[in-house]
Design a binder for these strands. Structure first.
Lengths: 247, 247
DNA sequence: CGCGAGCTTGATGCCGATCAATGCATGTGG
DNA sequence: CCACATGCATTGATCGGCATCAAGCTCGCG
């Protein structure tokens, strides 16, 4: 389902991974570079790091070292209130960045948990800073990615505060499908990486409601649902349900 | 209630405003600069711009030119879904920045509306980029401010998805009080700049529910409420109501 | 003074949380 | 290879918080 690493044997101990040869380049930070520039950029990434399913990439309170690009696998980020309530703030797949929450206070404000065995590229912030000063295009791309994160958050706020359960789930699925499609996977048939509870905690719903909405969408012929196996039967209707909200 | 401009006569037509002499310096982008550096930074801000109450600073779809720092006044940002539902995504007061939502797509994704007659500093993005390359500290501060915005959004998500109406309002008021206090105003007695409807649209509540919660907090002796005049009588209890959620 | 925008308060009904029970997969040890 | 445990998903029943509809009320302003 996800691209396999170019060379699994280099996961550990390799100090540098080449962005220039990464097949996720077009989705990640080094977008729009020429081949020559890319070659000079290759030390943007310091190391790769493997994170096993269920383990954390970072946790609230960890010192901020840099940001991470998902290379393979799947993550969730969650923030927790003092009294234990949890909010999943996002799901990240290959080519997406995470860790911006650490910038403001020099330590991470949320947890990042791998939902399956994953690999990330480690982009140390000092190096990113330095290279961003050198390459305008990297600077701009970095800002663009952060800006996208802000806009995404605004979309989630809109979703959380003004839509019904079914619409939230529809928006979530439509977004997931779109992102999978952009990575060359099927946008109509996929396997969810997260539990009903995690979806619910993201969408502000109980897991039971999530399950009921899945069933309802199934009844209505929009989806085929077999546990975590999803097949979108009627994309048009799904999009119509979303009614203008994009997450 | 808000600081008066240093020199109102320069609002229009003045090409440059000195950051070095701005009393909001410590809250704004140029934090942590030495006097010498500050002097060199003075052309970060291109112009000031006045926005009348009810008018927009920018609107969804406007070309992104740069970000804005609130100098005096009060703003709300809102994003709107295709079918007209509205979400207030934030309120901005003196010293706070807005406009990051334009970075990702080179155009703004939300509207910024002045809730009272306001003035902003215009920070053209190309200039910001350029100066950020020159001054590491500015680069870092800019990233920090954007990171803060992301963390704030995560806090709002948590609030929207996991708390009761009263707690949301309490969190909102506590946050407002804290920010006003940081600007030298009273944190216990202030005038709301926004309507019940705008608060509701921010907190994901109907205006009636907001009103009822104000009344309830009043009955409970936590607040004194006279329309938009708020006096916090029992800050400890207010904070306790917030129960670990910070917006 | 009267109009209108914004606020308050009440009555009603619905959506989704919660509690509870069952079903279904995977994996583990006997 | 089966029995059982465990984690996750489904489905049902109940109930409460908040949206919605519907009046009045307050205050600022032309």
């Amino acid at each position: 389902m996800h691209p396999s690493p170019d060379d699994p044997s280099t996961v550990h101990g390799t100090p540098t991974v080449a962005c220039s040869s990464c097949n996720l380049r077009e989705l990640c930070l080094p977008v729009g570079f020429t081949a020559v520039e890319l070659a000079r950029l290759d030390h943007l990434v310091a190391t790769r790091r493997a994170v096993r399913r269920g383990e954390s990439l970072f946790r609230r309170g960890d010192a901020f070292q840099g940001v991470f690009a998902v290379r393979t696998g799947f993550f969730k980020t969650r923030s927790t209130s003092v009294d234990g309530r949890e909010q999943v703030t996002g799901f990240q797949m290959a080519g997406e960045l995470l860790g911006f929450d650490g910038l403001s206070e020099a330590m991470h404000q949320c947890d990042a948990i791998a939902l399956e065995d994953s690999q990330v590229c480690v982009i140390p912030y000092p190096r990113l800073e330095e290279l961003a000063r050198e390459f305008t295009i990297l600077q701009r791309q970095f800002h663009r990615v952060m800006g996208r994160e802000i806009v995404r958050a605004q979309g989630v706020m809109l979703l959380l505060s003004s839509t019904r359960a079914q619409e939230r789930l529809a928006a979530f699925l439509a977004n997931l499908a779109q992102r999978l499609g952009a990575r060359g996977f099927s946008a109509s048939s996929f396997v969810l990486r997260m539990t009903r509870d995690e979806i619910g905690t993201y969408l502000g719903l109980s897991l039971e409601t999530v399950s009921r909405c899945f069933s309802k969408l199934h009844e209505q012929g929009v989806l085929d649902v077999q546990q975590r196996n999803i097949r979108i039967l009627d994309p048009a209707r799904l999009t119509k349900l979303v009614a203008g909200v994009t997450v």
